[in-house]
Design a protein around this nucleic acid. Sequence first.
DNA 1: ACAAGATTCCTATGGGGTGG
DNA 2: CCACCCCATAGGAATCTTGT
Length: 336
Amino acid sequence: MARKNLFELSEAAGEQAPPDATRSSLVRPLMGLDRPLKPGRPVGAISQSLENINSRAQRAEEIERKLSEGHSVVELDPSLIDQSIVVDRLGITDERRTALVDQIREHGQQVPILVRPHPDDSARYQVAYGHRRLAAVRQLGRMVRAVVRELTDEQLVVSQGQENNSRSDLSYIERCYFAAKLEARGFSRDIIMASLGVDKAALSKMIALVARLPAEIIEAIGTAESFGRQRWADLADLLEERAKRARALKAIQDPEFAALSSDERFQSVYDMVKIPAKKPDRTLWTALNGSRLVSISDSESKTTFAFDKRIEPQFANFVRERLQALYDEFRQKITD
DNA sequence: ACAAGATTCCTATGGGGTGG
DNA sequence: CCACCCCATAGGAATCTTGT
């Protein structure tokens, strides 16, 4: 928890920091993004150029530096801006949203968002990144500060993914989800790798993971910030079993489930399917005369007595009539 | 035969816990 | 408080599989 809060604070600080405060040490130009690429340029060029920059943070700092220095920032009406062609988030917590809104209300929007002209509607724009800032500004009813660039679809998603990477903004499952959506939209593996900053092996696993998990469960659990590849893969393994999957799908409908934090939701689903359902412990009670009168089934939540009517038809009724007396005796015993 | 993708295995890293 | 260990994570290399 403490870690998470720290992270949120530092991330919030990042949004408002003066753009040039920490960037003077950066000298390496962001190859491939320091000038707009010609549309239609082979996609390999993008990923190739990105290989030369190994540090994600550095890469992202560069993107921001370019934005704040090299390109003019304009103010746009948020209502003219549509979201990206591929949505990357699984939802955002309320406190994070309000924190950002407060911050922009007090300090203004320090970091511009990146948009491109809408390919189908010349009057509108599409976000490459800055969805949350856009939403916050929209809520405040202000104009949004934005950099407008001509971007191909590939450049758009690569910019979007790199921005997310740079801020360590997306949890593992969100990155997987984003990857899967890019894949579904027909982007090449090269582009997706460049966007997410992962190699082909990792990407393969990310896409496979989303394919293995029911979408309802991913969406119900949400970001699950604390859980990475291993735990999600474990969960996917466990959910291969049909019975467990059914149980998980049912559990996520519970209103109590929705009230948990995302991490807790993951843990709760995980725990539920991890512990194998204990099958009821069945024993047969045998009377002293050898009659096997009662079979007793003992599970986690209840104990069932089944009376065999073929052997002693009246016995069950007899016990039923004595229940109150038995219960009284029981109460008496535990209150002593 | 070749390329793309999937899988498996190994390892550096860092967080978290524990014992002195 | 520090040193150490354990474990999860995520990146990467090697290898296997599949499709053309």
